[in-house]
Design a binder for these strands. Structure first.
Length: 668
RNA sequence: UAACCUGUGGUGUAAUGGCAGCAUUCAAGACUUUGAAUCUUGAGGUAAUGGUUCAAAUCCAUUCAGGUUAUCCA
């Protein structure tokens, strides 16, 4: 067997084990089963990435199955949007399927279960049934209809299907166990009566199967080998298996592979929400412009924001798969787009907060078209020309009349390089009556070989084109907006999540097309929004560049006072000694020598009061005792007086069965 | 407080009993016609306590903490 050096996640381990136990590789089959009741968001991408990723890894088919068993919530619009988003991410499904395709088969199996005495029609109100259900701590009680005869059940179920009863009057239940500690096993409902138009089956059905009855059986019909879902479905597994085991008896000849449900932790992203219901609320209350608002965590929102499919797939890969609750920092997502866009986005110059610069020694009617590299990360991206003239804009932030040596940008009397152009020196400023700077007067120097610390981006005023620039901040000001028990997530909305301004861009951008991505040098990545028209460009800011300068100065009026990172405290010397000790006996000799020296060094910072409690360390923990002994020796050497406790600790150590400990102790 | 699940640097994820890695984040430096990128270096971790073992993040026990499950939703 070839040694797999790459690390596997727990699902891959399960699959490898199944393969090792004889599951043929060509039987591997996965599925992604969204309900078409909303748009896909970044959280779904994890599930998509897992199942489709496994498909790619094992060269196995992955079905796209719409779980459409509740016609009151589902719409074709969502089906279309989901397909578009998955395709955009670059995944290919084997078959496009619908749970509703299996309504006939499910009905047939339900009848079979009734015949076998494993399902019955209950005719109580939902309140009465809830009452009998019990609680997690109290067992439930049987329905009075539980022991109806097979004939009666068959008759009623058939009439339910035929539309003879109003909604809510009857349900079909599986007959399992009302006392099962797992609430889902207490005679779960399999069918309810619902007179609703289904986006695919129309008015053909008036009874609809419930999730638990549908999902596992759909997996089974499609011969899915591993059915992967999020952790919240863990309690459903027992029921999933119950249905599967029973149905297997009816169909095993034609459908030999019983699927296996496994659960992983869903993705949570800091400063955002993932609940479809809550996202819908943002749309309905017009907090955002729609499902594809660039601030939304939906795939369509991220797409419009300028994220690339690649960056999202990379993000999902980095996030990994496990079973513990997690909150992923948005900075990881941002890292992933920057990494991708850095390699692919062409650089251009744009000024968003302009101040005018007049180059006094540059002729008024002169203009030059200078060569600029499109992307130094990609030699094939080529060059373009940018116009230079006597009057240009630079960013207000890039000029100060006076500043310290840490300020690399333009200041009076200082020199700075203009990207792709010349070196200029600021000589004078002109101010209006409010004292605001209206013009900076500079002189230029054609010798571009000299070294200057700062480089600024700029645009020629005469040639600049304007565009609407939409800058976004996070939608919520709380790290976990929907986790607060007392406050509604809407209270954490950031009132300044959208900032619209006019930007001045180099003229080459007049050719830019919707969806095209650029790096505005020194500012960030921007994408042409679909709101652009032939005479007005609109750009969305995808993400800023990393800015280690901004971190050094106190943040100006940011609305979003980013929470200071919890200090990564240095650990105390004693706890480090303790930790080093734990493994001591485990190390090879040369490492022991190194660790010992380290402990001796650390012991200089340790007081006797810190050390003494560790004398009581369990006898078995020889390593820790050795470390304590080494530290103690160092303390004694530095003048610590011996006392009762020390003597006892040493004499006990001398009798220990661990040779290293004895050796250390005897040196005292 | 019934059942089930989960605890590894700030965050995420590896290590199936054998020297706790990787990524991100943060910090310092080098380089730089983007205070970007790149490169170098550093900081930071096995929830606690016992036990089994030559050897424990890993196995056992106890404790602690967090989560999930009670819709004719999925």
């Amino acid at each position: 067997m070839s040694e797999e050096t790459k690390s596997l996640n727990f699902i891959e381990h399960i699959i490898e084990e199944d393969l090792a136990n004889g599951l043929p590789k060509d039987k591997l089959r996965f599925r992604f089963p969204p309900e078409p009741n909303g748009y896909l968001h970044i959280g779904h991408t994890k599930a998509i990435g897992i199942s489709f990723g496994l498909g790619e890894k094992y060269n196995a088919p992955v079905n796209l199955r719409f779980d459409d068993t509740n016609p009151s919530k589902e719409e074709q619009e969502y089906v279309d949007a989901i397909k578009r988003d998955i395709a955009w991410l670059g995944y290919q499904w084997e078959n496009e399927l619908y749970s509703s395709d299996y309504f006939d088969k499910l009905y047939e199996w339900a009848v079979q279960l009734i015949k076998d005495g494993k399902a019955y029609v209950d005719s109580q109100t939902s309140e009465a049934m809830a009452e009998q259900k019990g609680t997690p701590t109290q067992p439930g009680t049987n329905s009075p209809y539980r022991d109806r005869s097979v004939e009666e059940n068959l008759d009623l179920f058939q009439r339910m299907k035929a539309g003879e009863f109003p909604a809510g009057t009857h349900v079909l239940r599986a007959k399992i166990d009302m006392e099962d500690p797992n609430m889902l096993m207490r005679d779960p409902i399999m069918y309810r009566i619902m007179y609703a138009h289904h986006h695919r089956t129309g008015d053909e059905w008036c009874i609809y199967p419930m999730y638990d009855w549908t999902h596992g059986e759909s997996d089974y019909i499609e011969q899915i080998s591993h059915s992967l879902c999020s952790l919240e479905f863990k309690p459903h597994r027992k029921l999933y298996d119950w249905f599967k085991d029973n149905v297997y008896e009816y169909a095993k000849d034609k459908l030999p592979l019983p699927p296996k449900q496994r659960e992983f932790a869903r993705l949570n992203l800091s400063y955002t929400i993932m609940s479809k219901r809550k996202l819908l609320k943002l749309v309905e209350e017009k907090v955002v412009s729609g499902w594809d608002d660039p601030r939304m965590p939906t795939i369509s929102g991220l797409r419009r924001r300028g994220y690339t499919p690649n960056s999202i797939r990379e993000f999902i890969k980095k996030v990994g798969v496990a079973k513990r609750e997690n909150v992923i920092d948005v900075s990881l997502l941002e890292f992933c787009v920057r990494e991708d866009l850095n390699k692919t986005a062409n650089r251009v110059m744009a000024v968003l907060n302009p101040v005018k610069v007049v180059i006094t020694n540059y002729p008024e009617d002169k203009e030059e078209w200078l060569e600029a590299e499109n992307n130094q990360e990609d030699a094939s991206a080529g060059y373009r020309k940018v116009p230079f003239s006597r009057e240009i804009y630079i960013e207000k932030e890039d000029f100060k009349e006076e500043a310290g040596s840490k300020f690399f940008r333009l200041k009076l009397g200082g020199e700075v390089r203009l990207k792709n152009a010349y070196i200029i020196k600021a000589n004078d400023v002109i101010k209006d009556k409010n004292g605001d700077i209206t013009e900076i007067h500079c002189t230029y120097d054609t010798d571009t070989s000299k070294k200057v610390k700062g480089t600024l981006h700029w645009v020629s005023i005469k040639h600049a084109i304007t565009a609407e620039i939409r800058e976004y901040d996070r939608l919520f000001m709380h790290e976990a907006p929907d986790s607060d028990k007392d406050k509604d997530f809407m209270e954490f909305l950031n009132p300044n999540s959208l900032n619209v301004k006019i930007g001045y861009l180099e003229p080459s951008l007049s050719e830019a097309k919707v969806g095209e991505r650029f790096q505005f040098q020194r500012l960030g990545y921007f994408v042409v929004d679909e709101d652009s028209t032939s005479d007005k460009l609109v750009f969305n800011k995808t993400v800023g560049l990393r800015d280690s300068w901004a971190k050094q100065k106190p943040k100006p009026q940011t609305t979003m006072q980013a929470k200071p990172k919890p200090q990564q405290q240095k650990r105390s010397a004693i706890s480090v000694i303790q930790q080093l000790g734990k493994k001591y006996t485990n190390y090879p000799e040369d490492k022991q020598t190194k660790v010992k020296a380290e402990i001796i060094d650390l012991a200089k910072e340790v007081s006797y009061d810190e050390l003494e409690p560790l004398f009581a360390t369990a006898v078995k923990k020889a390593g820790t005792r050795i470390a304590v002994m080494i530290a103690l020796k160092e303390l004694l050497k530095n003048g610590l007086e011996r006392n009762e406790a020390i003597n006892e600790f040493i004499s006990k150590a001398l009798e220990d069965k661990n040779d290293i400990l004895v050796a250390e102790a005897s040196e005292v």
